[in-house]
Each structure stands twice: as structure tokens, then as C-alpha cells.
Amino acid sequence: MASLRDIQNRIGSTKKTKQITNAMHMVSASKLSKAEQNATSFVPYSEKMQEIVKHIALSNETFEHPMLKPREVKKTAYFVITSDRGLAGPFNSGILRKVYRMIHEKHQSPEEYTIIVVGRMGRDFFRQRNMPITNEFIGLSDQPVFSDIQDLTQESVQLYIDQEIDELNIVYNHFISAISQEVVTKKVLPLTGFDEEEQEDVNSNSEYEFEPSKAEILESLLPQYAESLIYGALLDSKASEHAARMTAMRSATDNANELIDDLSLQYNRARQAAITQEISEIVSGAAAQE
């Protein structure tokens, strides 16, 4: 049985750990509310963008824009969003496991895919496994603004335009609620998925005038649209990161509390045992003297 002093030391160190996890939990909670706010303020922009793209993409004329037309896939790019720091529960491990498995199922050789990674955890993971990384971004702030990542999104879209890659998939943790996040994969390029609602929207788009022409607007609109999709995913992932860390830290605090309770019980029991032993020693000593 552990000595009294050992137990006391463990209680002390567990209490210290609990203080830290508790503080991290509260920090994450406040960051989460800000991240959620950022994600909401992005909504009007993305909705409007989507509306305009749909208006143009659904018009009766056909456009031979490379970003709208699927081509033979020789190289697929995966845009993986992770965090810079750990201690966020399954946030990073879940997404990295999924990407790793997906890549190994779909591709035979490293020539067929490439990775664009955000976050130190992801970068280290792929580096260790010698997987090709085209681009990386480390040190994204907790409250990212569009200009922070504009270079990265522009370069990623440019890769597609230059035909370096034929498909761009984005993998990130989608924020559902503070306690649940889900790893999702979305195809960003080529842009598809406008056809389904074609029938309903045709009427409303006929009235617009385009200056100078639809094709030219498409030329500058589509890259911006793709970039906004990536930015949206980043904001979503940030919210998920804070939520995941918050949950992980809360359960760590709960565990610490439980451990402290158990240890205190053990401590008291050991103390009682020591006292009992001492009394029985005194009593037997006194009995021997008579």
C-alpha cells in the first residue's frame, strides 16, 4: 500500500493538473464563441456569392470554363485542415486517420495525389510518413481573417487552373454543436452541383444584365468563389477545434475530480489504518507491562 506521503503528493499534482485543464477549458469556451461569431458573419458573403455563381452557371448558355468542367483525374489534391496544437481530443487524430485511409484506398503511388495542409499536427503527420506536401500553412490565428489565408487559397486554386491538379478535395472537421463535430470531405474543384436546382432558378436569372459579359464575370468570379469555399471550411474547422478542445478539457477536469476523490478516500483509509495500528501497539504494550 502506498504511503501517506505518496498519496498526498499525487493528490497535489492532480489538483495542479486540474487547474490547468480547467483554465484551458474556459479559454476554449470563450474562443469558441468568437469562432462561432466569425462563422456567422461569413454567412452573408458566402450566400450572396453562391447566389451569383448559380445565376450565371445556370443560365441557358453553356460555358467552357475549366473550373466548371470535370476532366480526367490524374492528380488529386487534398486540402487538410488540422490544428497547430494538440490536447483537442480526437480533433486531429480523427481527421488524419480518415485522410490516410482514403488516400491509401484510392491511390497506388504518391504521384497520383498531393496534400495541402493547414496546421502543425497535420504537417508533421504527413512528413513522418513521407507523403507529398505541396503547400503548408502553420500558425493560423485563432480568429483568422480572410487576408491571412488569401495567399494559400489563391495558390491552391491556381494549381487547378495551371492543371497541376485535376481535383481539389477539402477535408475538415465540420462543426455541428459544441459537443459533436464530424469529419467531412467536400469537392471544391471542379465546381459541380449546380444542376439539381436548375429548373427552379431559371426564371429568376433571365433578368440580370452582365457587364461586360457573363464569360468574363465567370473568369474572375469562379476563383473567388472557390476561395470563399475554402475560407468557409477554415472557419468551420476553427470552431470545431475550439469545441473539441473544450470538450476534451472538460472531461479531463472531470477525470481529475474523480481521481482526487478516490485518492482522498485512499488517503483517509491509510491514515485511519495507521492510527488504529498505533493504538493497538500502545494497548498491547500496556498489557505486556501488567
Binding site: F42, P44, Y45, V145, S228
Partner: peptide, 9 residues
């Protein structure tokens, strides 16, 4: 008139 950016209106 509304001016919207990715970082909010």
C-alpha cells in the same frame, strides 16, 4: 446598400 466581406458586413 450593403457591403459584405468574408469577415462580415
Amino acid at each position: 446598400v450593403s457591403v459584405v466581406t468574408p469577415d462580415g458586413p
